[in-house]
Design a binder for these strands. Structure first.
Lengths: 200, 200
DNA sequence: GGCAGAAACATACATCCTGCATCTGTTTTT
DNA sequence: AAAAACAGATGCAGGATGTATGTTTCTGCC
């Protein structure tokens, strides 16, 4: 292992370059959107060349997908962490929803995950990323809550995406400057309404 | 006004050309998405030239906006029609939600309005189209229902977009082949939960 | 230690798309 | 009937994407 500044292993070079490209891409995609961000501008901002980009990613979309996957992973982890700290099935739901809203407050996340991703990646590809993470967790949480009698029996396959969409819009509202407290209140009211008892 | 076959007034020519371009654009945007639809391919499909396109629309986005506005208008009309037939504030809400789901079942509508439009038009422009129509109606409906004591008092400014998103996802699920009955059940349950009584 | 091969990165090119400026022909107006 | 206004067609400039080809940097082996 040389300590000389100029020498780096291939693994290091790859990781550094990939991280650099993904970080720069995230910033530009958030600021200008996917379509309006050209690869020449992107590599210039990153201080590298287009050759490096196309060496590490099949095309512009693959780079975007890498950005989105990293974002989705971060959100999923935040939710699972909150999930672990809850007791009852209903509490897990409420805590998960809360954690989702908090995680999505990270600047740019709503634009990447909720605006650009659906249009750039197909619905299919987007599902592969989002669905195997957040949505699956939510589905399990709902099933558990219904099983436990905490929630009205409703078709989870339909309910989960719909609730998920509600959470997403709440996150967008918060990103757009709405009262965080109001957003959380409404989301909790929505879930509470499904208990059939109507209390919070 | 000549009746000779080859002779058409300018107004007729304009309307025919615009309609033709919008109809063709809708089909292609639905089938391949906005970004993957090139203007050369579009005008070829329409049997006209790019000159005609850029004569009637400032740019590709303007054509897309025309398509989206037409879709949004159709949805808004369907909702208002259903609204007029309802009695109580709560009934208007439920009828409006139902009408929304039915209207959004029109093939391609979810992709245009919910996937492509947010990414292609800014959130700002999209709001101008969607918000001044569907969302405003929903907001008024919610305010009326809360005023009448039919719904729990919640911040409408936040609740309306969130409910709207839930409806939208329900529409997408239906477009993707989910049980229409299940979708309607869930949507109604969501609204019912907000009454604070929990019944349908 | 030095060299062959692979991998990381850079450069150059072919293709395509967008938007505009220009040009032709038709309709409307006076 | 002539001029003005307008619909529509053609050609061009700028720029973007993705690939093919070169060059440098590392890695495994002798």
């Amino acid at each position: 292992m040389q300590v000389k500044s100029g020498r780096r292993s291939n693994a290091e070079r790859t990781r550094a370059m990939r991280d650099r490209l993904v970080a720069t891409a995230r910033a530009l995609f958030v600021a200008q959107g996917y379509a309006e961000t050209s690869t020449p501008a992107l590599v210039t901002a990153a201080g590298v060349t287009r050759g490096a980009l196309y060496h590490h990613f099949a095309d512009k979309r693959a780079l975007f997908r890498a950005v989105v996957e990293a974002e989705a992973e971060a959100v999923a982890q935040a939710i699972e962490a909150a999930d672990d700290r809850a007791e009852s099935a209903l509490d897990r739901l409420l805590a998960g929803a809360d954690a989702y809203l908090t995680a999505m407050a990270e600047p740019g996340r709503t634009r990447l995950l909720l605006v650009e991703a659906p249009a750039v990646l197909g619905e299919a590809e987007r599902r592969c990323i989002e669905d195997t993470r957040g949505d699956a967790t939510l589905r399990e949480g709902l099933e558990a809550a219904i099983e436990a009698g905490a929630l009205r029996p409703l078709p989870v396959a339909v309910l989960a995406p719909i609730l998920s969409a509600a959470f997403e819009r709440a996150a967008e509202s918060m990103a757009a400057g709405a009262e965080p407290a109001a957003c959380r209140t409404v989301v909790r009211a929505l879930i509470a309404g499904l208990t059939g008892r109507g209390d919070t």
